[in-house]
Amino acid sequence: MKIAIASGKGGTGKTTLSTNLSSFLSETESIILVDLDVEEPNSGLFINGNLVHQEDKFKMIPEWINNQCQLCGNCQKVCNFNAVMKLGKRIMVFPELCHGCYACSELCPTNSLPMKPKRMGELKHFKLGNLDFIESKLIIGEEQAVPLIKQTLEYVDKKFPKDNIIKIYDSPPGTSCPVIEATKDADLVLLITEPTPFGLHDLKLAVDTMKELNKNFGIVINRYGIGDDKVLSYCKDNNIPIIAKIPNDRKIADLYSDGKLHNKVIPVVKKQLEKVRDYILEYQTKKMK
């Protein structure tokens, strides 16, 4: 069972929910937490496990070999991302723009653009009790999150092929390609928002995205008590389930800023996480039928 935690707006509590929910659930069962916000993963600040595995991740990009190239320009014609360019008597490749689709390489009549691996980031796998925590991080200057998210999910699927284990994906913010990649295989998406005009604005975008992807999703409201009640009425009007409401509490912020989890020490949070757990378990039971 794959559960993606996404948001639209950044800073609404994806990592807070991902880490606290994982920690809470792992008290009774095995949980896999995956930080897919590879541009700036931060779940690791809250999970201090033992490193059990580490590996470099590579993407494939073309490299121009001069000796046989006829300068036909086919490579730049087939590239959708302006990553290959004919300049006078040479072909220039822009690795950061390349999406690794192989088109230029495969369609080159003289095989002058073989694909070569380029390091884009690293994956780390930690263990803490019942919790397996996997995070990937792009190296500085690398522009594309999608290939690393994809390879991270491949690692997780290979390592934990069983479907009955709960996997929690801490997703990137926004509604663009990285979020699509992080949520597209999820059975259930939890959208976390804050009850403010900004929160609602981006929540609507996230809801539209999840509808487009035909995802099952529900809402968790974080910092409940601030702002207004427009998120509540929006969810009611659109028949979107509100799974839990985590109250606005200075103690939570204090613990967060110290890199500490709060699910064990703040009873109201625990109660809300129980609601999330019940929703997940109920969904899982329905799915198995």
Binding site: N82, A83, M85, L87, G88, M92, L97
Partner: peptide, 15 residues
């Protein structure tokens, strides 16, 4: 209409 790589594309025209 291009999302990525307009810089090098424009530069290519100037080149």
């Amino acid at each position: 209409s291009e999302a990525h790589g307009v810089g090098p594309k424009t530069a290519q025209k100037i080149f």
